[in-house]
């Protein structure tokens, strides 16, 4: 790893451990993981199922299940996310960091419209009004190839195809 271009490094994970609490005691599912992600870079993690890919990603995002604990360092723009107060971390989630879930059907709330769920972070982070957030959501869907005429904003997740739901 080069040390002279730290400005270029967006995400630097050092010695990340993730432990899952099981009835038989904690079980380590991610061992001393290091990874570096540079600005404008793309990083793929490959591994067999159960090897800890999702655990790594959710640990970085700060959305581990209640029964899992992460330790080590997750440096984002030089700040350690793991030691950041929950409030500051929340301010980043959904604004600077995003997450696309594997199972779109269960990752969206069953009784809220797509529009309402897309608008929530827009209103929270960008301070948009309901109307602005709705307009922006429509734009975003349009960007990924779902024209507003499809009525996706007012649909519920069970009414969408899997592709549509992931895009949302």
């Amino acid at each position: 790893m080069t040390t002279n271009s730290t400005d270029d490094v967006l995400l630097d994970v050092r010695g990340l451990d993730v432990d899952v609490l099981t009835p038989e005691g904690p079980r380590r599912v991610v061992h001393a993981l290091d990874l570096t992600l540079r600005r404008q870079g793309t990083l793929g993690i490959v591994g067999e199922s159960g090897s800890g890919k999702s655990m790594t990603a959710t640990a970085v995002m700060g959305i581990l299940p209640e029964t899992a604990r992460a330790s080590g360092q997750v440096l984002y723009r030089g700040r350690d996310l793991l030691s950041l107060p929950a409030r500051e971390r929340r301010a980043m989630a959904g604004r600077e960091m995003g997450f696309v879930f594997q199972e779109p059907m269960s990752a969206l709330h069953p009784t809220k419209t797509i529009g309402a769920q897309m608008a929530a972070p827009l209103r929270l982070h960008l301070g948009l009004t309901r109307r602005q957030a709705r307009a922006r959501s429509a734009e975003l869907l349009d960007l990924v190839g779902i024209p507003p005429s499809r009525g996706v904003l007012d649909a519920y997740v069970h009414q969408l195809s899997g592709v549509c739901a992931s895009a949302s």
Binding site: R90, F101, A120
Partner: peptide, 25 residues
């Protein structure tokens, strides 16, 4: 449920998540 993780990933406050995501479901 996974939709709670989604709401967390969107940065919504826990209180909002509990009140408007967990309770209605």
């Amino acid at each position: 449920q996974p939709f709670v993780a989604t709401a967390r990933a969107q940065g919504l406050p826990e209180r909002t998540i509990t009140r408007s995501y967990v309770f209605p479901a």
